[in-house]
């Protein structure tokens, strides 16, 4: 379902922003802003967990926060498969929901997620602090009935979260946790570029395809490449016995 109509009414908007603000103010000294934004999003919207991913397209994709392993897997799976509600939310700039109890437009994503994580309900809302999408906030729960799942609220919250992130200078400091993990993926892409003499976009596709075939995420494959345990420059990919 998509929404392009009016947001919540003024009374609710202020109350929602105030609730979001109180959530952001909590744990200031304990958690970085993206994690507080994720928690605040779940506080206000509901759901079991949430993730914030910046720039859904390669190569500048960066998952800033995932509140639990399930939502981290939902995010990683969509990256590997190149499909899912997050992708569609980012490209259409609209809220996209998926009920894994029923058939969805994303066959691979749905069947894998259903098998690994169960029949979840997933809602992906694009962060559009200006007229383009900055990234996606994804939230999940057991079923839409559990949280109401109002797409108007999801969109309003996602826009506010995106705007809050834009003011966050720390996004560009080198010691941000998520970036430390992600930079290994970029380094691995560079190694595959040199191994195969291909473009970074193609190198990323090689890593994604390998992650898919190994049933894992791109971070795991990147770690193998960086450890030089996996080299694509021979006839086929060779994985040295990690044991």
């Amino acid at each position: 379902m998509t929404n392009d109509g009016l947001g919540p009414d003024p009374r609710h908007r202020a109350a929602i922003l105030a609730a979001l603000t109180r959530g952001i103010a909590r744990d200031v000294d304990r958690l970085p802003l993206p994690a507080r934004l994720c928690n605040a999003f779940v506080d206000v919207f509901g759901g079991a967990g949430a993730a914030i991913t910046l720039g859904y397209h390669q190569p500048d994709r960066l998952t800033l926060c995932a509140t639990d392993p399930t939502v981290a897997r939902l995010d990683g799976l969509q990256e590997v498969l190149g499909e899912g509600p997050g992708w569609d939310a980012f490209t259409s700039r609209r809220v996209v929901t998926a009920d894994l109890r029923h058939p969805t437009p994303w066959e691979h994503f749905s069947s894998t997620a259903r098998q690994e994580l169960g029949e979840l309900w997933v809602c992906a809302a694009p962060m559009r602090p200006d007229d383009r999408a900055l990234g996606v906030v994804m939230v999940y729960d057991e079923s839409p009935e559990a949280i109401g799942g109002d797409p108007v609220l999801a969109q309003f919250l996602a826009d506010a979260v995106g705007a809050a992130l834009l003011g966050h200078d720390a996004l560009l400091t080198d010691d941000v946790g998520p970036w430390v993990v992600r930079q290994q993926v970029h380094q691995a892409v560079g190694m595959v570029v040199a191994q195969l003499g291909i473009s970074p976009v193609d190198a990323m596709a090689v890593i994604r395809a390998h992650a898919y075939s190994q049933d894992t995420d791109v971070e795991a494959i990147a770690a193998l490449v960086l450890d030089r345990a996996l080299d694509f420059s021979d006839a086929g990919p060779t994985t040295k016995d990690p044991a």
Binding site: D60, D131, L134, L166, G190, A194
Partner: peptide, 27 residues
């Protein structure tokens, strides 16, 4: 706001290129 999104995006992409080059040189 759009300028800030743009410059953030450029900074992120610049960072990506440097990391990729580190990997390529390492190899």
């Amino acid at each position: 706001q759009r300028q800030i999104t743009e410059s953030l995006r450029e900074a992120l992409l610049g960072r990506v290129v440097i990391e990729q080059a580190k990997g390529a040189l390492a190899h």
